[in-house]
């Protein structure tokens, strides 16, 4: 049988599939349910200093290529959120990434101190939520300078490995990735949702999302994710948590080949059910069997782009 175990920043994961931030990670039980259905690593909802209700609905809209969402960073706040994380850790052997969101490095540092006191395994900095523009403006991940400043400040404080979550909606993602790496980021997570975009109801002549705009996820963004992961993999030596439209084992293998070390599966939870993690793990194994690979490390990567 092919082996799916994989090392990520010093932790052994049962398989390379990750529950990304914003999906099912609101409660300890949601995290555990995802684990039991085959996720190898769990990410909490992005936590902020204060609880947030998020945007008014509709917060999701479906279209042929995937879905748009504008949840608006709803979360129970860092203190309640970490209680859920700790409860999950008590009940499960699975590792957890705590995702945090703030708008400046001082707040990110405060959040980091809270996370230090929890049982989390990794810290993810959500620098790239595209759905709170009206409130906070352009995501931090749009500026290499901002990314550098925040990662640097957090790294000084964090007891856990730090993962920077990047936005695909930038002109030069490699420059941003380099800034994160230079500031000391231990890994990168990409991509966050694409766009944002919009959909219109033609009978009522209204934007379907109440927030008007929302980030795209699902199959339509996979080619963008692959390209950006591949560009960063080619340019920098840093572990990558790759995600964006992964729905099948074939998609996950493409992510690994583009340079991802582990792979996030989010929107596909809707398309294929919560069992999607088990299903994709089986599909990866089938591919490995067919190709004669005994472990994930044997799956070849693309040849890097030459500069």
């Amino acid at each position: 049988m092919p082996e799916l175990k994989v090392d990520f920043l010093g932790k052994e994961l049962n398989n390379p599939l990750v529950l990304p931030a914003g999906v099912m990670g609101m409660s300890y039980s949601g995290m555990e349910f995802s684990s039991k259905n085959g996720a190898g690593l769990i990410t909490s909802k992005s936590l902020t200093l204060q609880a947030r209700s998020g945007h008014k609905g509709p917060v999701v809209a479906e279209f042929e290529g995937g879905i748009l969402n504008c949840m608006g960073l709803c979360n129970p706040g860092i203190i309640n959120g970490l209680q859920e994380v700790d409860e999950f850790k008590k009940r499960s052997g699975n590792s957890v990434i705590v995702s945090v969101f703030a708008t400046n490095s001082a707040d990110f540092v405060i959040l980091t101190r809270y996370v230090n006191k929890s049982h989390a395994d990794f810290l993810e900095l959500n620098l790239s939520c595209p759905n709170v523009f009206d409130e906070f403006g352009i995501p931090l991940a749009a500026s290499g300078e901002e990314v550098y400043k925040i990662v640097k400040a957090v790294k000084k404080e964090s007891k856990l490995p730090v993962i920077a979550k990047l936005s695909p909606n930038v002109y030069d993602i490699v420059a941003i990735a380099k800034a994160a790496k230079t500031a000391g980021a231990d890994a990168l997570c990409l991509i966050n949702t694409v766009g944002p975009g919009m959909l219109i109801d033609t009978k009522m002549v209204k934007s379907v999302l109440f927030n008007k705009f929302g980030g795209l996820s699902g199959p339509c963004i996979k080619p963008i994710a692959l390209k950006l992961i591949y560009q960063i993999y080619s340019a920098i030596d840093i572990p990558i948590l790759g995600m964006g439209g992964v729905t099948t084992g074939e998609d996950a293998i493409q992510m690994l080949m583009a340079g991802a070390n582990i792979v996030g599966v989010g929107t596909a939870v809707y398309k294929r059910g919560i069992e999607v993690f088990d299903k994709i793990n089986i599909e990866i194994k089938e591919y490995m069997n067919q190709m004669g690979y005994a472990n994930l490390q044997q799956i070849p990567k693309l040849k890097k782009i030459e500069n």
Binding site: M24, S29, V59, Y270, I274
Partner: peptide, 21 residues
């Protein structure tokens, strides 16, 4: 919120099942 089993707001303890799915 989402009603399609993604956002996790309607999960029930301790099973984590989603009330919308």
């Amino acid at each position: 919120k989402c009603a399609i089993g993604i956002c996790g707001n309607c999960t029930i303890d301790p099973l984590g099942i989603r009330l919308c799915v």
